[in-house]
């Protein structure tokens, strides 16, 4: 939606350049990084944050924020595990879980759009509520004992043509969301709300409806990520997904999307997800302590936002 092509090219270029640079540095320090096995591992690692961050991109483009994604992930994961233990078909369970995620997101959207409340406050509240509901449902204990479905195991641990299934899921979702954002009127409306909500409303865009849909998408993405996590762990953890919202927001911001809304691209978010993923993966390969990793990640976010300021 940017108009000046030069700045568009530069902003695409900048985060991509950072990504290439990072790959270069990590490879030089440890050539094992580029081994196919590690790359596949990397793709699987980033798929959960990727899915959440893609949904978060829509939310942030409208000038909103969704802090409840981590709790949504945990709640849908717990409910799904419960359903499977009770004998519901695993594939059906995944669909129901994603639907529940959409409803949890829609609740956020309704409070934000109809209640005219700040997204930060609404999702902060539902973050606590959804987490509390998870703890109530699980009684604070992990749910296990649903691990014998081959199809469900495949969802988190399997491979398709040599690529991890979670990565395939993430890429399909990315393509679908990219298409929605850039080729469909839904995407134009998303940008319009972030660019100038009043003007969007007066132009006859049903702003409330679009917002509810966007928060539903965010909830769906969290639930889908929750299914991958549940499958990989073979259990539903009541504390799953804590601080996942932060990694997702970080990826969106590193990818060049403005927290004020109206400016940004989902492809940038993909790059942001890759940067965070490679930082984690690379530092693990290099044997850097997890404590340092946190510091480095924080520094990268600061630099990314600083560069973005300079650009605009």
């Amino acid at each position: 939606m940017k108009t000046n092509t030069l700045t568009t090219i530069w902003s695409k270029f900048a985060s991509l350049l950072a990504l290439i640079l990072l790959v270069g540095v990590v490879t030089v320090l440890n050539p094992a990084f580029l081994e196919p096995a590690n790359l596949m591992n990397l793709l699987r690692q980033i798929s959960i944050n990727g899915l959440i961050a893609f949904g978060m991109t829509f939310v942030i483009l409208t000038g909103g924020i969704d802090l409840s994604v981590g709790s949504t992930l945990a709640l849908t994961s717990a409910l799904a595990a419960g359903m499977m233990v009770a004998g519901v078909d695993p594939i059906l369970t995944i669909f129901i879980a994603v639907l529940i995620g959409a409803i949890l997101g829609a609740v956020n959207g309704l409070f934000i759009a109809k209640g005219k409340m700040a997204p930060f406050i609404v999702t902060l509240a539902t973050m606590t509520i959804y987490r509390g509901l998870t703890l109530l449902y699980t009684e604070g204990k992990p749910i296990t004992g649903f691990g014998d479905s081959y199809a469900f195991q495949l969802f988190g641990k399997g491979y398709f043509l040599g690529i991890p299934v979670p990565a395939v899921t993430m890429i399909i979702v990315f393509v679908v969301l990219w298409f929605m954002l850039h080729k469909m009127s839904f995407g134009r409306k998303t940008y319009a709300i972030g660019g100038n909500e009043k003007a969007a409303l007066i132009s006859g865009i049903r702003v409330d409806r679009v917002k509810v849909m966007i928060y539903s998408i965010s909830g769906m993405m969290a639930a889908l990520a929750g299914m991958i996590l549940t499958s990989r762990l073979g259990s539903a953890q009541p504390t799953a997904g804590q601080t996942y919202e932060m990694d997702a927001i970080a990826a969106v911001v590193i990818g060049g999307t403005s927290l004020a809304g109206g400016k940004g691209r989902i492809a940038g978010t993909f790059i942001g997800v890759l940067i965070i993923g490679i930082l984690n993966n690379g530092m693990n390969l290099l044997g850097i302590s997890a404590f340092y990793q946190q510091v480095v990640k924080g520094v990268v976010i600061l630099i990314a936002v600083l560069l973005d300021r300079k650009r605009s």
């Binding site: 939606m1 108009t3 134009r188 660019g195 003007a199 969007a200 400016k263």
Partner: peptide, 13 residues
């Protein structure tokens, strides 16, 4: 400026 247009966006948008 405030209600009619999205100033950062293109004429087309």
């Amino acid at each position: 400026k405030d209600e009619g247009l999205i100033l950062d966006y293109s004429i087309r948008d």
